[in-house]
Amino acid sequence: MRDARLRAIAAVMPSLLVWIGFFLAPLVYLFIVSFWRVRQYRLVTDATLDNYIAAGSEYQHAILFTVVLAGFVGLLTTVLAFALAYLIRFHAGRFGNALLLTVLTTLFGGYLVKIYAWKGLLGSDGIVNRALLETGLISQPITWLLYSPIAVVITLVSFLLPYAVLPINAALRGIADAPIEAARDLGARPVRILIDVILPQCERGVLTAFALAFFISAGDYVTPQLVGGPETFMIGNFIQSQYVNRMNAPIGSALAVVTMLATLAAVALVSFLYRRALRACST
């Protein structure tokens, strides 16, 4: 009995140490530094809330914009991923696995490769605009496709979609056929079956997919830099700039902590709403 427990502890120890050393400790350090100050480019220990006051006033807009944009990306990614996983599970038959494999092969293309691919597609001289011009649907290239929040959304959704499909696919595969057929047998139409039987049973998968897409989008600073244009700054860009350009780790840390709390709150809210919405729809 004691041996088994010791063995279990020994088994998780390596990963626990890695987690503590490379995740928890830096996070705690980040949190502590957020109360410090910088004087003549040097960190000074302190217990000030000035950094948080700055984060709350000067960067309020950036944080809100980031949460809204990432929330939109998360929502869109989750809906598309659900549709795809639903198709694979219920309608693609034996082509389901081939379809899933096709979705996953897009993971071979790296993150930056995808960003540049979208630059080539969405630019004024890009494939989309050229095609529209050739067919005569437009006479001037659409300029807001690239270097805009829309470009950031498109790029992030396309990058995150395969990641979001995986947990939803796993959740849908876990749902047995019999309850679905039983609902049909009891008179439920497809939409009712989706709301009453399928969505409640894949709650964890859907929320995992959303959280994954949302957190990655909220923390991203490369995509807005490359396709977002001069007006689209997400909070990641400001944090990066505080650390790299202004050498002000305390403000950067405070911004990171606030963003983290805001995104966690947003995911908690979405989880709560998911359950509430299903309950409201079912009666």
């Binding site: 019999a178 309850p179 679905i180 039983a182 049909r184 047998d185 008179g187 049973q201």
Partner: peptide, 20 residues
């Protein structure tokens, strides 16, 4: 006519209860 409109109901193998 589909099962949702038939005056017939079924007890499924493994029962098919709604787990939630």
């Amino acid at each position: 006519i589909g099962p949702e409109h038939r005056p017939i109901n079924m007890v499924f193998q493994g029962y098919g209860l709604f787990p939630h």
